[in-house]
Design a protein around this nucleic acid. Structure first.
Lengths: 169, 169
DNA sequence: AGACATTATATGACTTGTCACGTAATTTTA
DNA sequence: TAAAATTACGTGACAAGTCATATAATGTCT
């Protein structure tokens, strides 16, 4: 039987098809799409970056809080928040004060320009969430969140079994 | 009836619970976990970065190809690949040559140190994929990939409906 | 044959995220 | 009570990703 020639184009197409079903690759790509779209909407509607929006949204919903609180809600490193805050304060989005009972802490609260920026961005970001709810059923979104949660939990486990024997040697 | 006091701690906990079910937030977080774990495994096993691994894996599986080919397989911007390649060439991972029939193109192929680095990283990265397959059923992974694909497609649509009326004003 | 349009890559600049470490404040331990 | 340990944040350095733009090469159109 004659085997089809395995051209370069065929090998690339096969590779592309493989990666289209690779959960790690799809996770990367889906996240990049989310990040791109979110930043675009925020820039257009309120001139905000993603981190600025998240801080303002958290403060608006839950009131003043520490940098550590913000980082935990956002599941990110405190240094990312810490880094963004001085510029946000200069823009009048937030005020930062030392913790009254713990001098190590910084308490962040919304300032006047922050309320305005939040108000400018909120309608579009709400429509963004609604658009997702019209694209997926409630059950599908629930399944997605469940799978993402388990995926994240699995990947945050220690990797000793994956790395052996390279490192334990 | 007596309403429970709505303390700051309560509001923060409520906010955290809300974000735990927010698909956008979970997507961010799951991707960050994936990126962290992947980079850690690559650093430990072969001293590779994520972009270096992806390039080597693609070349190993599909042979020499252009920067545009690599970017399309990886669903990323060609500039990200273009940026990484000079250092990869200096390390002896790849060789870059101008396209024979199209002078605009650069064709990338694996070099000796690239084969070695790929061989060093591959076993652990394979165990990583196998670990995921033991955490999720085949059906669950299929569902995850399907939902991620649709999520990405939805977020790559134009955002005119989301942005109105801020911009079309 | 030349003008115009498109494509491929390279680079500047920016955003986001992480890890390590330093400093200062608080908590724990002896 | 003082030393040691831990915690909260700030900063350096690096990795990854994006957008815009420039340059050079190729393709299309008249």
């Amino acid at each position: 039987m004659t085997e089809r020639p395995n051209t370069q184009k065929d090998r690339i197409e096969k590779r592309r098809a493989y990666e289209a079903k690779n959960p790690f690759s799809r996770m990367d790509s889906a996240h990049h799409a989310s990040r791109q779209q979110g930043l675009h909407i925020l820039q257009q509607s309120a001139g905000l970056t993603t981190v600025e929006w998240r801080v303002l949204w958290d403060l608006h919903e839950a009131g003043p809080m520490t940098i550590r609180d913000l980082a935990q809600i956002q599941r990110s490193d405190p240094s990312l928040i810490s880094r963004a805050l001085p510029a946000m304060e200069r823009k009048g989005f937030v005020r930062m004060t030392r913790g009254e009972h713990d001098g190590r802490q910084v308490v962040v609260e919304m300032d006047t320009a922050g309320y305005a920026a939040h108000a400018a961005a909120s309608p579009a970001m709400k429509r963004r969430r609604e658009a997702l709810r019209s694209t997926f059923s409630e059950q599908e979104l629930s399944t997605l969140v469940d799978l993402l949660t388990r995926f994240e939990d699995a990947l945050r486990e220690p990797v000793d079994d994956i790395l052996e024997p390279e490192v334990t040697q």
